[in-house]
């Protein structure tokens, strides 16, 4: 077990741990927007970390470079998907949760 394998194993462990936090947040948090917060951030960073470990494990051959290309596509796809879902949920009339303290977007809608 050499250095590259160790580093890639540590990166995978970090990634799976972040995925675990994101999934727990998806179940525990109270309303749609908070679930979107936890799930999008943690799961996207965790998956990026797993893909980066592929690059470190194999070096610059075709499999590593392909994983490197997947990272920006995943970043744009996941953030824009989260943005579109949040906007669509607000347009659909889903209220903010009970603990909310401030809502500036309401005056735009009415």
């Amino acid at each position: 077990m050499n250095l590259a394998e160790t580093i890639s194993l540590i990166l995978i462990i970090i990634g799976v741990l972040f995925n675990l936090f994101g999934a727990i947040g998806l179940v525990r948090l109270p309303d749609v927007y908070n679930r979107l917060q936890s799930a999008t951030k943690c799961v996207t960073l965790g998956t990026c970390s797993i893909l980066l470990s592929l690059l470190i494990r194999f070096g610059f051959i075709d499999i590593g470079v392909k994983a490197l290309i997947a990272i920006p596509i995943l970043f744009f796809a996941s953030t824009v998907g989260a943005h579109a879902l949040a906007r669509g949920a607000y347009k659909n009339g889903i209220e903010l949760g009970g603990k909310s303290v401030k809502d500036d977007y309401k005056e735009v809608e009415s």
């Binding site: 596509i73 744009f76 579109a84």
Partner: peptide, 17 residues
């Protein structure tokens, strides 16, 4: 169409897809 963020990212991604 959809909001401006979606439009701009569509311009970036559509040819790559």
């Amino acid at each position: 169409g959809m909001s401006r963020i979606v439009k701009k990212v569509t311009q970036l991604l559509v040819s790559i897809i």
